[in-house]
Design a protein around this nucleic acid. Structure first.
Length: 222
DNA sequence: AACTCGGGGCA
DNA sequence: TGCCCAGAGTT
């Protein structure tokens, strides 16, 4: 899919989700980093339920170090992979205090040095906390990009990111990321995507074949 | 490239 | 109930 066609698709998606913004609860870069780290492999909704009370108890890096690991684990127990994440959060806080003066660093390479922070999380942090344009490729962004042929089906996550950046103006990277997330989460879902009511179906090879197969299946069943 | 971690969401 | 998932780290 070329840049011009992608632009058409993204404009349609923008109309579907005019308020597309990832709704992670955060008031500063530190809380955003913790929230995104927690969100790995579970829904933002679940993270928000936990952070709503978590951020009342833990306000700065030192607060996470003032409790035993077991206590922090218990405080985030409702989130998947909570043992890894609790451990990572304490190590992260230790590092932020010792090497970054208690503040979340702004450089991408410094962010990915933090335990539990990979490329995706770092992109979310720089784009949402520091206003640096970035496209964080999660499974939604990856799935949608591949269904619409923005990239090849077997491209790596990094390749997906590169091709999106190449085809989208730099000042629209971050909003595009949010829109693709919403589109992927609520419409172009992994299971049972809404191809039957999709306004950009004409640009989606996979969707068209999926719909055709579905219709065929129905007609055969009847 | 494949595996692990793990409670939640959904069928 | 049993499957899959808004990743990252290790081997």
């Amino acid at each position: 899919m070329n840049a011009a066609t992608l632009r058409l698709v993204l404009d349609q998606i923008a109309g579907m989700f005019p308020d597309a913004r990832c709704e992670l609860n955060h008031r500063n870069p530190f809380e955003l980093t913790i929230a995104v780290l927690l969100s790995a492999q579970c829904t933002d909704e679940t993270v928000n339920k936990v952070t709503a009370t978590l951020f009342e108890k833990y306000r700065e890096p030192q607060d996470y170090l003032n409790v035993p690991l077991e206590e922090l684990e218990n405080d985030i127990r409702r989130i998947g992979l909570f043992r890894n994440k609790a451990s990572n959060i304490q190590k992260l806080c230790r590092l932020v205090i010792d090497k970054h003066g208690g503040e979340i660093p702004r450089k991408h390479e410094e962010l990915t040095e933090l335990p539990g922070v990979g490329r995706k999380t770092a992109n979310v942090v720089v784009s949402n906390a520091f206003d640096v344009p970035a496209i964080a490729v999660d499974t939604h962004v990856e799935r949608v990009s591949k269904r619409f042929g923005v990239c090849k089906p077997d491209d790596s996550v990094l390749e997906v990111e590169k091709k999106l950046m190449k085809k989208v103006p730099r000042d629209e990277w971050t909003i595009t990321h949010h829109r693709l997330i919403f589109f992927g989460r609520y419409h172009c879902k992994a299971q049972n995507p809404r191809c039957d009511v999709c306004p950009v179906l004409e640009h989606c090879k996979e969707g068209k074949s999926r719909l055709k197969a579905g219709l065929k299946k129905r007609s055969v069943t009847k």
